[in-house]
Design a protein around this nucleic acid. Structure first.
Length: 165
DNA sequence: CACCTAACGTAATCATTCT
DNA sequence: AGAATGATTACGTTAGGTG
């Protein structure tokens, strides 16, 4: 693959690790604000925190996965209870059409940009590099799905006529 | 070299926004 | 309500640092 130029491997200090491990033991699924708080606390990028938690959950054969529904509808008898409601995720970024145009152009040039290209793009359109990375991941994913659909369609059409094999 | 683990890939899914 | 698409997860792979 043309996956060269990854970001240089960060090595966390023992102090940082201590805090991360501690946080993980208390909650392996931190929300966005928690991750942000950690990022500030140990002076690292939030995206690195996110990756760190992902890797840690994977490695430690973690057998507990997040529940699907939490069924919030129940009672309105506790009005001062859920003031914050909402699940804690990063706010969805909305791209302007010109930003999208830039991203799409870059994508056709290279669907697997390395860290340098991603950072350059991020700078250019004024969006965090981590968002650019996610954008490329989603774009590749959806392109693959589209391709797959096209192939299935072709196969279906073929089967309707004369299926051999 | 072997081992650990950050970085990064895909696939599936959740959630928000728009039509 | 459903289509688009951004965000998050599980899980697998690639590669950097160290004993």
């Amino acid at each position: 693959m043309v996956t060269k130029g990854r970001r240089s491997r960060t090595s966390f200090t023992e102090e940082q690790l201590e805090i991360l491990v501690q946080a993980f033991s208390q909650n392996p699924y931190p929300g966005y604000t928690a991750k942000q708080r950690l990022a500030v606390e140990i002076n690292a990028e939030e995206s690195r925190i996110q990756i760190w938690f992902q890797n840690r959950r994977a490695r430690h054969g973690f057998l507990k996965r997040p529940k699907k529904k939490l069924d919030p509808s129940k009672d309105h008898a506790s009005p001062k209870e859920k003031i914050q409601g909402k699940q804690d995720r990063r706010c969805r970024t909305s791209y302007t059409s010109s930003q999208l145009q830039t991203l799409k152009n870059a994508f056709t040039e290279n669907p697997y940009p390395g860290i340098d290209s991603r950072e350059q793009l991020a700078e250019k359109i004024g969006v965090p590099e981590s968002r650019v990375q996610i954008w490329f991941q989603n774009r590749r994913s959806r392109l693959r799905i589209q391709r797959k659909r096209g192939l299935e369609g072709a196969l279906d059409r073929r089967q309707n006529q004369g299926q051999d094999l």
